[in-house]
Write a protein that binds this DNA or RNA. Structure first.
Lengths: 243, 243
DNA sequence: AAGTGGTCTAGACCACCGA
DNA sequence: CGGTGGTCTAGACCACTTC
């Protein structure tokens, strides 16, 4: 079992690619240890240092996690609540126990490919899609309205599952119910004004500023979910440092 | 010249700190090569590999830049145009030559500490501040209105310098004129609606969505400039990937 | 051709974890 | 305690830049 592939690429890069593929194909489960450095070293016939350099890259990319004295593990990406990172919510619970966002499903239905779902059907490679409408609240205040699109029929169970069973977070539900792990998300932010529909669900005035977050959620086998979330503009806050 | 400091820290970490300090103190100029790996190795009495690990960190942090076969250089952070990164502008110049944003100074004055400049005076550690008002355009279209605050009297030359001499980009001007290099910026984004003043300068309707970008620009000796930029909401676009 | 960083090896010792 | 990753060394050879 040696490293072939582009002989122009250095050994550690080829090893990185091999390991990355194996992680994506779930050769090891999430939170499971991959082989030790010396095992990989002898398996692929390279020095330990070369293995370390390959693993180092994957750690920087967020796929693996080292635990000193214990091993190197497949990392579970945690996007739970990650849409809320765009908003500013004073966690006013004095007690200090963390607030969990609430969710309320407004509608669930299957749609063929009417105009507004065409991008979703393309991205999900599915002619019919499931459409969920959901309101998300933070300590009682509605913050976001979401339009969520999922491939049909693969995810049809979501149409009839009890809302309590689905829970407030979808990604853990996808993992439990459909064995699909979200490994990467892409967000695109833009801004606009509240329509009638939004003013109603978010309890803000029509014409108030809103932010729109378009999200693609990907798993090992491609785009898993297409989502468009509208949030209250007055609660939007984002910080970046550059150097 | 050996590495003292916390003996709990590994050698490469101590060396990283030493080098980072020297970069901050401009021991080497921007774009100048630092000593070679073998020079550093013998100077500090550590192996080349240890030097490489220290340098590697600083490269990841953006302070240094390696050039294979040539040397390791102090990196010039490039925030030129960096406010435009928040906006979507189809670069419609067919020719492919890069468009430079235009700037138009609207007003320049010294202010004591009226209400709205109090945060700036604190951050700039200066009781009087210079206030610049500036419009920024992209291929003729006004995109942003900026309120810029600088410490007085240190930057008073900006009050009377010819606008052509100042040019469309302030950071290079600060470097030329005041020998101050911006090394780090912090942006905070929020959204709102266009006031009368904004609708006038940005040629949009009052009540249209705008984004507000609050920026701190820092140099080696602290906060150098405080800026609030208002941009057209319809041109705002920001993308992020997470994993 | 000389000098730089880039890759790779072999091996020693340390710090941490878990049984 | 044995096994894991973390630090560190010494040294060979390669790829690239510069003159």
């Amino acid at each position: 079992m040696l490293l072939d592939g582009d002989h122009r690429l250095p050994l550690y890069a080829r090893l990185r690619d091999v390991l990355a593929t194996q992680v994506a194909e779930l050769v090891w489960k999430v939170d499971e240890a991959i082989p030790t450095e010396s095992e990989l070293s002898s398996e692929y016939g390279v020095s330990v240092h070369t293995v370390r350099k390959a693993v180092e890259q994957l750690v920087n990319e967020g796929l693996l996690e080292r635990r000193h004295g214990s091993g190197t593990y497949v990392r579970r990406p945690s996007f739970h609540n990650s849409l809320f990172r765009w908003f500013n919510f004073e966690d006013t619970t004095q007690s200090g126990h963390k607030t969990v966002p609430e969710s309320r499903l407004v509608s669930r239905e299957v749609k063929a490919a009417p105009l507004e779902t065409i991008p979703a059907t393309k991205l999900l490679r599915s002619t019919e899609v499931i459409h969920l409408e959901r309101v998300r609240l933070w300590s009682g205040t509605p913050l976001m309205l979401e339009d969520i699109y999922l491939p049909y029929p693969k995810f049809q169970a979501v149409l009839h599952d009890d809302e309590a069973e689905i829970g407030p977070l979808l990604y853990p539900y996808y993992e439990r119910r459909f064995s699909r792990l979200v490994t990467e998300v892409e967000d695109e932010i833009s801004v606009g004004l509240a329509t009638e529909r939004l003013s109603e669900f978010l309890s803000i005035e029509a014409g108030a500023p809103v932010v729109q977050i378009d999200r693609l959620s990907k798993s090992a086998d491609g785009v898993l979910e297409v989502r468009r979330a509208y949030g209250r503009g007055d609660r939007f806050r984002y910080r970046v440092k550059m150097s």
